[in-house]
Nucleic acid binder design. Structure first.
Ligand code: SF4
Ligand code: SF4
Lengths: 162, 162
DNA sequence: ATAATAACGGATATATAATATCCGTAAATA
DNA sequence: TATTTACGGATATTATATATCCGTTATTAT
C-alpha cells in the first residue's frame, strides 16, 4: 500500500499558500510551476482542497487559490482527508460469515475484534495527523529551509504576484 | 488508498491457526475452504507469513501451516508487515528540491517537517497495531463469535484434522 | 518404488486504482 | 471582447492488487 502522492503535493501547496500575503492568490499553473508538477493533475487535487473547504478559489485574472482560514486552524489531517478521502483504509469484507462454519448474518451484531483493532490503529494515525497544524508545518519549513531557497522563493513570489 | 485485503485474510488465518491443537497443521487448501477464499491467492499470502517467520510450513500429507510461536508473542503488526511489506506508506519524492527555487540537494540534510509528520503518524499506527497480540484477537473472537459458529467450526476441524 | 499431498517460486493474466491529459463551460478581469 | 482561471466530465496511460497456472521439491503413505 502506498499513500496518494497528491498528499505530499497538497501539503506543500498549502504551506506555500500559508506564507502568501493576506490578499494574494496563486493559480494552479503557478503552484505546478513552483514544484515542477504536472499542472492538470495538480489542479485536480487543488479542486479537492477547494471542495473540502480548505482553500478558496477565484476565477479569472488575478484569481487562483488561497487558504480559507488561518493556517493554525488547518490540520494535516484536514488536507490528507481532502485528498485521500474519508473512507477507512481497512475495509471489512466480513469473511467470518462465509465458509462451512458461517451462520446467519443477523448473528453478527458488531464488527469483529480484528476490524476494531485495525480501526483503532487508524484512529491513532488520524489523531496524530490532527495534532499537527499547517502553521507548525510552515514554521518548521521556514526554520529548516536553506536560506538561499527562501531568497529564491521570495523573488519568485515577487515576480509572480505582479 | 486501501489496505491490502490479504491483511484481513492473514489475521483471520493466524487466528484459526492459534486455536489449533498443539501438533496440528492446516494446509492452504483447507484455510481457503474455511473462509471461502481463492485458494492460490491465499497461498501466496500464507507464503509471505512463512517468509516472515510467523508460521512454520510442512510439505506433504499431513503438512500445512501452524504458528511458529505462541499467539501471545505475535502482534497484529507482525502480520500486517508480513503481508503489506515494511515500506512506509508515505513516500517522500523530494519535491522541495525542484522548481525555480530549488537549490543544491546537498543543502537538504534531513527529511522536511512534512515527511517527519507523516512518518510520526505512521509510527502511531504501527505502535497501536504492535500493542495487540494475536492471543488477544483470538480471545475476543472466542467470546464474541456466535456459539453456533463455534460448534460448526469445531466439527469442521474434527473432520479435517482426521 | 510409486503415488498422493502440499509448499514454493516464477510466470502470466485480469481487474482495479493511481496518475495524467484533454476538452468544453462558466466566471471574473481588464 | 479577449484573456485568464476554476471546474467538471471524459478519456488515456501506468502501476498495483488480485487471481490463476505450472513446474519443482519435499514429505508421507501405500
Ligand atoms: S468484521 Fe472481522 S471478519 Fe468481518 S470482515 Fe471485518 S475483519 Fe473480517
Ligand atoms: S522531505 Fe518534504 S519535500 Fe521532500 S519529498 Fe518528503 S515531504 Fe516532500
Amino acid at each position: 500500500m502506498k499513500l496518494n502522492e497528491g498528499i505530499e503535493w497538497a501539503i506543500h501547496c498549502c504551506s506555500i499558500l500559508a506564507s502568501l500575503p493576506e490578499d494574494a492568490a496563486l493559480p494552479a499553473r503557478r503552484l505546478a510551476e513552483f514544484f515542477d508538477l504536472p499542472e492538470h493533475y495538480l489542479a485536480k487535487h487543488l479542486q479537492a482542497l477547494s471542495q473540502a473547504g480548505l482553500v478558496n478559489s477565484a476565477k479569472g485574472p488575478g484569481g487562483g487559490y488561497r487558504l480559507s482560514r488561518p493556517a493554525a486552524n488547518i490540520t494535516v489531517l484536514d488536507i490528507v482527508l481532502a485528498i485521500d478521502g474519508t473512507e477507512p483504509h481497512f475495509q471489512c469484507t466480513e469473511i467470518r460469515r462465509k465458509g462451512p462454519s458461517g451462520v446467519d448474518p443477523a448473528c453478527y451484531s458488531k464488527p469483529c475484534g480484528i476490524a476494531r483493532a485495525m480501526w483503532r490503529a487508524e484512529k491513532a494515525w488520524r489523531d496524530e495527523l490532527a495534532s499537527i497544524s499547517l502553521k507548525e508545518i510552515t514554521d518548521i519549513g521556514m526554520q529548516e529551509t536553506p536560506s538561499l531557497q527562501i531568497e529564491k522563493s521570495m523573488e519568485w513570489f515577487g515576480n509572480v504576484l505582479k
